[in-house]
């Protein structure tokens, strides 16, 4: 649905995107993650046909965004990070105005159905100016769906919401996938991405650092960490000794729960030998499951070292 090759965007002397590549397949939820200012919104705006790339090719729904004359030619549903509506229109009038744009007609029943679907059935006749941030976000999702597009591009759809609002938006995204939609969404909340996405792309300082299906990304070789729970409290002298074992890079935790980060080829028998030598009884010992946050932080650290 989306194929981006060598996408570059310069704002005067500042290079916001430095030749990124990405591919979004039909029917998947693609999570686009990166720090604030990494280039997520710039990419989103280009994909939505609202900004022109400096260089590179960008196919959205089979259309080259550099050759379109109007954003609506891309036939996508777009939700900006902070969707701006006319405060003096009601929710119904807003969707009516957007729905009946570009020579299309949308029935009142469809508008009511959409508002109901996003949980705004009580606010149909209320002016948008009085809506909370979460309600505007829901209305934005309804607006993106008004013409029933196959591809949805959501820029930080849940980032500014409270936990309940975030949960609702993520559930809506999952429902949309079940309806056969393809969703490309950006976020800097990694747990959100981990919860709903099929594929993840990491952008760091305008460059794609990684792009993989989520399960594959979570299997990635990041430096191993071990979570250890001891039977009895230990003193800080033991912790110091532990961190001096060859191959141990960092020891964190308290007197009962330890987290030991090691080199890639660390021999775990050294840890067990240490516990036996120091007469330390161990309640549990487990290698930590990779989380998207670990992968992401490793990519950020790698990028920092390179730059």
């Amino acid at each position: 649905m989306i194929t981006v090759k060598n996408l570059t965007k310069n704002f005067n002397s500042f290079s916001a995107l430095k030749g990124i590549n990405l591919r979004v397949k039909k029917g998947e939820i693609y999570g686009f993650i990166g720090q604030n200012g990494a280039g997520k919104t710039t990419t989103m705006n280009i994909l939505a046909g609202l900004s022109r790339p400096t260089k590179g090719s960008c196919l959205v729904n089979g259309k080259d965004v550099t050759k379109i004359k109007h954003p609506s030619e891309l036939h996508i549903g777009y939700l900006p990070e902070a969707p701006r509506f006319y405060p003096w229109l009601t929710a119904f009038e807003t969707l009516e105005y957007l729905g009946n744009s570009g020579g299309r007609r949308v029935a009142a029943a469809r508008i009511k159905e959409l508002l109901d679907w996003v949980g705004l059935s009580e606010a149909v006749r209320r002016r948008v100016g009085g809506f909370s941030r979460g309600m505007k976000q829901r209305l934005g999702i309804a607006a993106a769906l008004i013409h029933d597009p196959e591809l949805l591009i959501f820029d930080e759809p849940a980032s500014a919401l409270d936990p309940e609002g975030r949960n609702d938006v993520l559930n809506l995204i999952k429902k949309l996938k079940n309806m056969g939609k393809t969703i490309f969404f950006s976020s800097h909340i990694l747990s959100d991405v981990e919860r709903v996405c099929d594929t993840v792309g990491i952008i760091i300082a305008g460059k794609m650092a990684a792009e993989k299906p989520l399960p594959e990304m979570l299997k990635e070789d990041i430096l191993p960490s071990y979570d250890i729970t001891l039977q009895k409290p230990i003193d800080s002298g033991i912790l110091d000794k532990l961190s001096q074992i060859q191959g141990v890079s960092k020891v964190t935790g308290n007197e009962l729960n330890l987290s030991v980060m090691t080199d890639a080829f660390f021999d775990t028998s050294l840890l067990f030998k240490f516990f036996v030598d120091n007469k330390l009884a161990v309640n549990s010992f487990a290698r930590r499951q990779n989380r998207l946050e670990d992968v992401y932080l490793q990519e950020v650290n790698t990028n920092d070292k390179q730059s």
């Binding site: 609506s72 900006p80 701006r84 934005g140 607006a143 013409h147």
Partner: peptide, 13 residues
């Protein structure tokens, strides 16, 4: 205010 973004995406010429 960027209030034209959604109408443009919806097809307003």
């Amino acid at each position: 205010d960027n209030t034209l973004v959604l109408p443009l995406c919806a097809g307003q010429s």
